[in-house]
Simulated assay, not measured.
Amino acid sequence: MTAPSFTGTKFINNIDVYYEHFPHASSTETVVLLHGFLSSTFSFRQLVPLLCKDFNVISVDLPPFGKSGKTTGFTYSYRNMAATVTSLLESLGITSYTLIGHSMGGQIALNVLYHFPKSAGKAVLLCSSGYSKRAAVPLVVSSYLPFFHHYVKYHFAKTGVRKNLQQVVHDHSLIDDEMEQGYLAPFLENRIFKALTNMIRHREGDLPPEALKRIHEPCLLIWGDHDRVVPLEIGKRLSQDLPNSELTVLKETGHLVPEEKPEAVYSSIKRFIGRKSLGTANGSQ
């Protein structure tokens, strides 16, 4: 794992946001990594060393995950998290960048492009969530019960880290103790479960087709053909609704593409960022 040249925490939108910065000696291109649900900067550990060859890299722990704040006073909606990311980058003096979002991070990247146009020049969506509705009303109402966060913690403990990893990784031989401990670490303190309760309450639905069709920044979609969390059909649908996009499909790959196929993901990103304009053909690797 490549050590960041700088790590920091900034107080943005009333919450502490942790980030890791890997500056490049000469590149003028910056990529910003946004992880998925129940994850952290750790999920990009295989991809970051490759991206560092060509780009300035910033990896962000989205609240309430990783080392970022877990306050119950923050609004954990996608739009507010998108606003938090853009404000963090502004505070760091970064005005030109490509967003790389995995799963939930992909949906937040799309929210950045939609709600804060011209903030990012391009986006790479790695098995991005899409078309999900807001949580059902009974679940949202239940989240206001005083002890609901204990249920959230119980549900997480019942499924377990290994079982969750087996759901997101196609090749189970990749799952080792380091991976398990890395994904478990953020959940060893109880505060996160109250914050997750608020996320259930605050999370709006994913951007609808009419919003996606208004996003004109170039988007590269990278999907695993064995994704059981966000099936490939979602990627195909997003590639139709995003007017300036293309879809690359990685064979024998599950949902956690930055862990499973970092070299292929890196190659696609490098080619995409270096291109002046997008083609229309989809590809498989």
Rank of each mutant, 00 (worst) to 15 (best):
R237W: 09
G73F: 06
R191I: 01
T41D: 02
N244M: 06
R271D: 12
L62Q: 00
R203T: 03
I58P: 05
Y78N: 12
E233S: 15
N80R: 12
D16C: 02
D54I: 03
Q167D: 13
F65V: 06
E180P: 06
G36Q: 14
G36C: 13
V60W: 00
L188W: 00
L247S: 09
I100F: 06
K67C: 13
K194F: 11
H226I: 09
E246V: 12
S39W: 10
E29I: 07
L34P: 02
F65I: 07
V141G: 06
G224V: 15
S43W: 03
N244H: 08
S129C: 08
S284V: 15
S5K: 15
F272C: 04
L126I: 10
L89R: 04
R203V: 01
L238G: 04
A25Q: 09
F272N: 02
K118R: 10
F55T: 03
L33S: 01
S143G: 08
F22N: 00
G73H: 15
R214T: 13
S143Q: 08
Y151W: 15
A157Y: 11
I175W: 04
H35G: 06
E180Q: 12
V17P: 07
I12V: 10
L221C: 06
V152C: 02
E246I: 09
L51E: 03
A264K: 14
R271K: 15
V137A: 12
G224D: 11
E20I: 12
A157E: 15
Y114C: 01
N56A: 04
T248A: 11
S59A: 15
T197R: 10
A83Y: 03
T72H: 04
A83E: 10
L250E: 05
L207S: 00
H170M: 08
A264M: 13
F11K: 15
E180N: 06
M1Y: 08
K276W: 00
G160S: 04
T280A: 14
S96C: 12
F74P: 04
Y97A: 04
E210N: 10
F22D: 14
Q285I: 14
H155Q: 08
M81Y: 05
L212E: 03
G283P: 06
D61I: 00
S26G: 12
K10D: 12
G160L: 08
D241A: 14
G254M: 06
K236R: 15
A195K: 10
N111W: 01
T197Y: 01
P231V: 12
F55G: 08
E260Q: 10
R214C: 10
Q107C: 09
E178F: 05
F148T: 04
I94M: 05
P63I: 12
